[in-house]
């Protein structure tokens, strides 16, 4: 029995991510689930704009690179034309929850049978550490050098809570990848999301709390602690909606 072996759906190339960035863990979990469900040959992924645009080079199945924030619209067009395939987007918090707000909300409204993997690390990574819609109040970023000011920037967006009341959303969960226990739970939720899509039950989204040590200005070890102490209290973990209803 082997632990830590590379999923077949994940290409054997080094990630370009910074040391300790948990995108790598999320990539591994998604591809493990795709392997376990044996859906690699009928899965199409949509890469965002941001650090994880390079998922297109890592995921070893058909991939599409779409414009910033529009992944769920691209996924809609694709899935409507190929309803028997498995279609998912991989998006960061800037991509999904700022510029792409219209697209993911309305994909959920329509109950699109797609899955959004939503990486929430409370900061813009690729562009160099600016405020994200999920940046915590008081959190310092390059564009909130004195901390996010609620009077100027408002409050962090809670995506799962927002989508739960919509009839079209079928499975919503917020998970984290900052410790082994959370990683195991995260994988279960990702698997459930793909299953919900395959069963045709509606829209699914997994919000993954992640770290960005570089732009948080913390060591990777400090970053996972910061996530636990600051992000988890504001973004509570758990399932927010299952096909049985709002939790």
């Amino acid at each position: 029995m082997k632990k830590g072996s590379r999923p077949a759906s994940l290409k054997d190339v080094p990630f370009h991510y910074c040391p300790g960035c948990t995108h790598g863990i999320a990539h591994r979990l998604v591809t493990e689930v795709i392997d376990e469900l044996d859906i690699r040959g009928k899965t199409i992924g949509i890469a965002p704009v941001g650090c994880s645009v390079f998922t297109m080079d890592y995921f070893d199945f058909d991939m599409i690179q779409g414009s910033h924030g529009r992944g769920p619209a691209v996924a809609t067009g694709l899935k409507r034309a190929l309803p028997d395939r498995v279609v998912f987007t991989y998006q960061g918090d800037g991509d999904l929850a700022a510029i792409g707000t219209g697209e993911f909300v309305h994909a959920a409204v329509r109950g699109e049978k797609i899955t959004c993997i939503f990486i929430n690390n409370a900061v813009y990574g690729m562009t160099g550490g600016q405020m994200a819609p999920t940046t915590l109040v008081g959190q310092m970023t390059k564009t909130t050098p004195f901390g996010r000011d609620k009077d100027i920037n408002g409050f962090p967006i809670k995506v799962c809570e927002m989508l739960a009341p919509l009839e079209g959303s079928a499975y919503l969960a917020r998970v984290a990848v900052h410790n082994p226990k959370s990683i195991i739970k995260a994988k279960k939720a990702i698997r459930r999301a793909f299953e919900v899509q395959m069963q045709g039950l509606g829209f699914s989204l997994i919000e993954i709390l992640s770290t960005c040590p570089t732009n948080w200005g913390l060591s990777p070890v400090k970053a996972v602690q910061w996530l636990e102490e600051n992000m988890v209290p504001y973004f509570p973990l758990g399932e927010y909606k299952t096909p049985a209803g709002v939790i």
Binding site: I44, I46, I64, G66, S67, R70, A73, V74, A75, T76, G77, L78, K79, R80, A81, L82, G102, E103, V105, H106, V109
Partner: peptide, 26 residues
């Protein structure tokens, strides 16, 4: 066929992008 009213023109053109990726005439 499918007629879908999108939430915006931005979404429309990206849905076109997705369906075209599938090889469909759109």
């Amino acid at each position: 066929g499918l007629y879908m009213q999108a939430e915006s023109e931005v979404a429309s053109i990206n849905m076109v992008y997705g369906a075209s990726c599938a090889g469909a005439r759109v």
